[in-house]
Design a protein around this nucleic acid. Sequence first.
DNA 1: TTGTAGGCGTTATCAC
DNA 2: GTGATAACGCCTACAA
Lengths: 341, 341
Amino acid sequence: MSREVTIYDIAKELNISAATVSRSLKNHPAISDKTKQKILATAKEMGYRSNTFARNLRRQKTNTLGVIVPRLNSTFMSEVIAGMEKVANEAGYNLIISQSLEMMKKEAINAATMFNNRVDGLLVSLAYDTDSIAHFEPFIQKNIPLLFFDRICDQQQYAGIVINNYQAAYEITAHLIEQGCQNLFHITGNLSRNVYADRFNGFRQALADHQINHSPEYLLINNLSAQEGKATAHLLLQKKTLPDGVFVANDTCAVACMLELMEKGIRIPEDIAFTGFNNDPISWVVKPQLTTVHYKGFDMGETAAQTLINRLNHGQEASNQTIVLPHELISRQSSLKHATS
Amino acid sequence: MSREVTIYDIAKELNISAATVSRSLKNHPAISDKTKQKILATAKEMGYRSNTFARNLRRQKTNTLGVIVPRLNSTFMSEVIAGMEKVANEAGYNLIISQSLEMMKKEAINAATMFNNRVDGLLVSLAYDTDSIAHFEPFIQKNIPLLFFDRICDQQQYAGIVINNYQAAYEITAHLIEQGCQNLFHITGNLSRNVYADRFNGFRQALADHQINHSPEYLLINNLSAQEGKATAHLLLQKKTLPDGVFVANDTCAVACMLELMEKGIRIPEDIAFTGFNNDPISWVVKPQLTTVHYKGFDMGETAAQTLINRLNHGQEASNQTIVLPHELISRQSSLKHATS
DNA sequence: TTGTAGGCGTTATCAC
DNA sequence: GTGATAACGCCTACAA
């Protein structure tokens, strides 16, 4: 393993000082174009590559952003990552990515690792069961920019990148009501997570605004996995009266629940209309296709990364507002009743 | 932003040398337990955290593994990443992940970034159109361990982690034949990729071994996206004689193709039986459910990371064999004809 | 426009 | 067992 070429080697080769080499490589204005050219050429020729550690050590900066997500394996989240990667790359940042696997404990461990690796900033979408953000304290104390996205922290002082989950839920619920549904249920996740709380609130408000009464048991909470979707189907079947419309807070769970009910002879959407959330590929593959809410993960990733980078560049002055991105209702008639009125 | 605590600060605090502090922190055997305890306590108390750059600079090692994958957004790949992350974490390595988005050009850029970031080793699954691995030359020249997985490099000297694609394809094709299919087609990706070449060969061999003739147009190549799956459906419809069985090299494309054909009045599986590859969630959600091949992405990720780390620890002596992981045929009768004999 | 010199925080090599 | 010291490669006042 041959030794690495350093700026000193280049300097010696050209009989100039290392400082000049360093400056040329950074395209410093004070260096004449001629020397710059010469140095760049020699650097390439000698196979020079800058040493990130030395640079980081000197500058007290890593040019690395940390990302902690609940899971990587959803269409949505991988789009988010792709968007982040694009922006980060263009701005000269690297991404270190880790998954909490929906566990606060692992989220905390990951946060500690990120901290020790001196990430310049951290992007986080909270785990399912996170009920304290104490593990992010070190970042706050050291003033390392911390930005939440999608599943954000409800405390006022922490801004984040989100969509209007309330509004989206309102719209999709109103849609069900317009199709003639009268007895609506909602299946969702931990209401401590903003995304689920907001969706529930939107759902409730839509019911209220349309003067729809609801069963006292209209709210069903699970972890939104396929498995629990299936289990919840059985739970529904044991109710005295079945709902005629169900709004599920994600597509995976919606599809699993729906398929299980069909298995048991329930007709979808004639007996029960279903809607989901996320516009996951399974929502358009499943029969009947699922009405759902689409929001661009890629854009969210881009926005999150860009916002964080702005904050890195401009420090405290940078805005700390929560940013709300647009969403879109994807209405697939096949999953909806037709209005009976 | 208060200045970071260094080993010198701890040393000064305790009136000892920085060297002793450093050794204690590394749990060096030559330090007495008493001093060690004292130092550890003070370090914690002062909020010390070791500086990775200084450490890396000194040791010429980053404790970071690079990962380049075609895309993150598949169930399979996210499982791979999860497996890698687990092993890497346990061994004290970090992961830097990037996507080539199936483009060799971006793969090359990513490789360069990884190289400049001095990753200790690199894990790669090749992009769809990669036809040269010249962009990995710097790693080879500098003797930085490079390991391919799933979509590996066919050149002999580069080992990798794979499944037996040939065997899996053979099995699934034989399955179709046993169900009575006589006119089989194969839809797959770029045959320069080992995974697709091997699957094609397995398919062909199964036909040969069962004395099944095939149409001269039985091989259809596309990029295996949903979009092209749909397009290929139309292509099939223009054939003089439709196939009665199709083996598609991934589930996404299989499902898209199948759904489009059903849209056009073809009965699945009565007219055409379909099989896929990957055991993606859509393969069990779609009706009829798709017979497919399952292989554990998580295991592949674990194995790949572990193999790379072994090579880092043991240098050249470490084995450089290609490792073949098991797969499993997931037979879902609903997607298959019943044997007619 | 270019050069000099010191320091970023750690670890390895000597010495004691 | 512990301490002093010299790198690791780069950046940046300050000087020339």
